[in-house]
């Protein structure tokens, strides 16, 4: 790692101030993406501003059909939360399938979505559930938050404070994990909510996206057989040593069918 200063503010105002006063300050959440990247010297920072001391970023609450999860809530906490398990079991299930137990004990929802790895799991849940990302300066719909590979709508010094998830009628997530890292080669989050069916795909493209043609047929009939005749185009999909674009395109329909079956219990 290149050297940096370490800071631990106790409030969001203080954190924002520290970021503003630094040359190239970065927020540190669970550190499970940032620290490996710094260790490889793929990134550097003048200051790391650790959010761990800011109480208001932690915890899970639910009211009026919306579950709100603080940015610093770990994947383990989301997976084990009875509130999340009762309201949106698919979300608890997704969090419990990220990486491994030690990654889940440190990694946070705020860190995962701010990083927007093309193969990360949470972006699929946010887009699938039509969630809202709350930051230090505004609220952004998930559809507008994820803007490209490792890119989000976050501005300089803007900190994610929480994510609000409307409770769907039913939902499920299925991923085909990379056997080494457990990141999604393809992951599909399917949700049936008040405004119809949403199908969010992660791992397959540069960033999470909605499979609109699949949403259309599932709105006609919410069963795996509705997807039988769909052939997803492989144009623009990711291709690497793990899977070809063509294979990923095929996995989108396979994961969708499994997710629909799971959502239908």
């Amino acid at each position: 790692m290149y050297s940096f200063d370490y800071k631990r503010p106790s409030s969001l105002d203080e954190a924002t101030q520290m970021l503003r006063n630094s040359d190239d300050g970065h927020v540190l959440a669970g550190g499970h993406t940032l620290l490996p990247t710094l260790k490889q010297r793929l990134a550097s920072a003048s200051d790391l501003v650790d959010l761990a001391g800011i109480e208001e970023l932690k915890g899970i609450s639910s009211a009026d059909g919306v579950v709100t999860i603080g940015a610093m809530t770990t994947h383990s906490e989301v997976a084990a939360s009875s509130e999340v398990q009762n309201a949106i079991p698919a979300l608890a299930d997704l969090a419990g399938g990220i990486g491994d137990p030690q990654v889940r004990n440190k990694g946070t929802i705020g860190g995962s979505i701010s990083n927007n790895d093309p193969a990360a799991d949470y972006p699929a849940a946010l887009v699938g559930l039509n969630a809202t990302v709350n930051t230090t300066s505004r609220s952004i719909s998930a559809d507008n938050f994820f803007t490209g590979m490792f890119e989000t709508a976050l501005g300089d010094g803007e900190i994610v404070t929480s994510v609000s998830f409307p409770v769907p009628h039913s939902a499920a997530y299925c991923k085909f994990p990379n056997p080494a890292s457990r990141y999604a080669i393809v992951g599909v989050f399917v949700a049936r909510g008040s405004d119809g069916v949403r199908v969010a795909v992660t791992g397959a493209g540069a960033s999470v996206f909605r499979a609109r043609e699949i949403e259309a047929v599932l709105n006609q009939g919410f069963s795996a057989s509705s997807v039988a005749d769909i052939q997803v185009s492989d144009e623009g999909l990711n291709e690497d040593i793990h899977a070809s674009a063509e294979y990923r395109a095929h996995l989108i329909t396979v994961m969708t069918k499994r997710a629909v079956d799971k959502a239908n219990g």
Binding site: G31, H32, P101, K106
Partner: peptide, 8 residues
């Protein structure tokens, strides 16, 4: 349990 190589 945490990975002490990925924590300051």
């Amino acid at each position: 349990s945490v990975k002490s190589c990925t924590m300051l």
